[in-house]
């Protein structure tokens, strides 16, 4: 199968996902009992006023017409208008999504930086105390409710120690860097704004560590398993027999090969991290999608909920597509077939 065929097929799937996901969310959000028009009009409004708003929003039209209009708008980049904020949903998502992405990427980097060495150590010294320690740590990581952990580290590092700020993405008294990318960290570096950068880094540590904690274990586990596969391969034995040092074999030969299958796991971890981010954000006042989407669900803000689900799913599939393509490029065996 050629690279292009795979690409084309996966892009086709991307479209399928958007349609599927939007259909599912649309169906779900219209099953929700409750009337968004009533929420806009206020509790004390008359029924006639509510009906007028319903008509203005097009909520009185048949569902398939509403869905058709939604998709037509979506193709043109219009995700509709949020019922809750009265602003275009796309605008709100652009305001909130980069922060979530920033948090997820920071957590992912943290989990890779810690998880890979731990996984290698665990595989190399299999069934030794360090292996048990790493595996126990991994298990504790995936077993910890992130929202609970978040509360505890917040109290410890802000409340007791006063080392780190309690929440938000940047100190509101510091003028934020100009928006180049929407990612505060990157923007602060580009702008060369040291004060902002320090503030952004400090604010990022606790939420990223909380979110990453769970995934250090997952990465370590994956690397361990892939390393064990590699260490059992003939070439490793040959290399050792040929007089190469153990550390050289492990780091130069086994690890790079073990990293390749682990790349796909990163794509999946991205999805898990997004899920974790929603919970972590609510605890750390992180200005991402988490609080926005919870508030939108509570307010029956259909366009906002749909926009969020579709955009996040789209990003998730896209990331996995990129990961898979990277995998094809990295893995010599697949290249040979192509």
């Amino acid at each position: 199968m050629s690279f292009l065929t795979i690409l084309r097929r996966r892009l086709g799937f991307l479209i399928l996902v958007v349609i599927g996901v939007s259909l599912i969310t649309f169906a779900i959000s219209h099953m929700i009992p409750g009337d968004p028009a009533r929420l806009i009009a206020g509790d004390r409004a008359s029924d006639a006023a509510v009906a007028a708003i319903r008509q203005k929003l097009g909520l009185d039209r048949p569902l398939y017409v509403q869905y058709g209009l939604y998709i037509a708008g979506f193709v043109q980049g219009d995700l509709g208008t949020s019922i809750r904020t009265g602003r275009p949903v796309a605008e709100d998502i652009i305001a909130f999504f980069p922060a979530t992405l920033e948090l997820v990427i920071a957590a992912l980097m943290l989990s890779v930086l810690l998880g890979v060495p731990l996984g290698v150590a665990s595989a190399v010294w299999r069934d030794r105390p360090i292996d048990h320690a790493v595996r126990s740590f991994a298990v504790i990581g995936i077993s910890t409710p992130a929202f609970w952990l978040g509360l505890i580290v917040l109290l410890l590092f802000y409340g007791r120690l006063g080392w780190l700020p309690s929440g938000g993405a940047i100190d509101p008294l510091i003028s934020p860097p100009a928006h180049y990318t929407g990612f505060d960290l990157v923007d602060a570096v580009i702008a060369g704004n040291a004060a902002a950068l320090v503030s952004v880094v400090k604010h990022l540590i606790l939420p990223a560590a909380t979110l990453g904690f769970v995934h250090v274990g997952i990465v370590a586990r994956q690397i361990r398993s892939a390393m064990l596969d590699q260490l059992g391969e003939d070439y490793v034995r040959t290399a050792r027999a040929g007089g190469l040092s153990r550390s050289r074999v492990v780091l130069r030969h086994a690890l790079p090969n073990a990293m390749i299958p682990s790349v796909t796991v990163l794509g999946l971890a991205f999805g898990d991290l997004l899920y974790g981010a929603v919970l972590t954000e609510t605890v750390f006042a992180w200005p991402g999608m988490g609080n926005y989407v919870v508030a939108s669900i509570q307010a029956l803000d259909f366009p906002a909920v749909m926009g969020f689900t579709v955009v996040v799913s789209f990003a998730y599939v896209l990331v996995n597509l990129l990961v898979d393509l990277a995998y094809i490029v990295l893995d010599p065996r697949i290249k040979e077939i192509g």
């Binding site: 399928l16 779900i28 899920y275 929603v278 919970l279 989407v293 689900t309 996040v312």
Partner: peptide
């Protein structure tokens, strides 16, 4: 399998949140 792929493509907490919100 395509259907499962689509379900897997939605972040699980979002889907559960939406479903839980829809069903009450």
């Amino acid at each position: 399998m395509r259907l499962m792929d689509v379900v897997l493509a939605v972040p699980s907490l979002v889907l559960t949140m939406a479903l839980a919100a829809a069903l009450g």
